[in-house]
Amino acid sequence: MCLGIPGEIVEIRDDDSQLATVDVVGVRRVINIGLIGREALAKGDWVLVHVGFAMSKIDEAEAAATLELLSGLGQAYTDELAALAESDIT
């Protein structure tokens, strides 16, 4: 199962790579923000992350509700977090 997981942007790269670092439940990973556009995002914003891409911008309340819901999925959520922790698009 593939899930979209909320992540908080902690850094947007200064170059033209369309990459940002997000924190997803304590795991920091570089993701591509090209589908949303860097001008629409800032440090502290929340995005829905799927397979290394920010799919949409969400607010903090939606992120918290989604994380709570996902934590109830058990193994599928655990597997997705493990896959995220092992990924690296840089």
Rank of each mutant, 00 (worst) to 15 (best):
G4E: 13
G4Y: 05
E8W: 00
E11C: 01
I12S: 03
R13G: 02
D14W: 04
D14T: 08
S17H: 05
S17T: 14
Q18A: 09
L19T: 08
A20V: 09
A20W: 04
A20T: 06
A20G: 09
T21P: 01
T21E: 14
V22H: 13
D23I: 02
D23M: 04
V24C: 12
V27L: 12
V27Y: 08
R28N: 11
R28I: 01
I31L: 07
I31R: 06
N32I: 07
G34Y: 06
G34K: 05
L35K: 09
L35P: 00
I36S: 03
G37H: 02
G37D: 07
A40F: 07
A40H: 01
A40R: 09
A42T: 04
A42M: 01
K43R: 13
K43H: 01
D45C: 03
V47K: 06
V47M: 05
V47I: 14
V47F: 01
L48F: 07
L48E: 09
V49K: 00
H50S: 12
H50Y: 02
G52Q: 10
F53I: 02
F53T: 09
A54P: 01
A54D: 07
A54V: 08
A54C: 12
M55K: 13
M55V: 11
S56P: 00
S56A: 15
S56E: 15
K57W: 03
K57Y: 03
D59P: 01
E60G: 09
A61W: 06
A64H: 07
A64Y: 14
A64D: 13
A64F: 08
L69I: 00
L69P: 00
L69K: 13
L69R: 14
L70E: 04
S71A: 11
S71D: 14
S71P: 05
S71C: 10
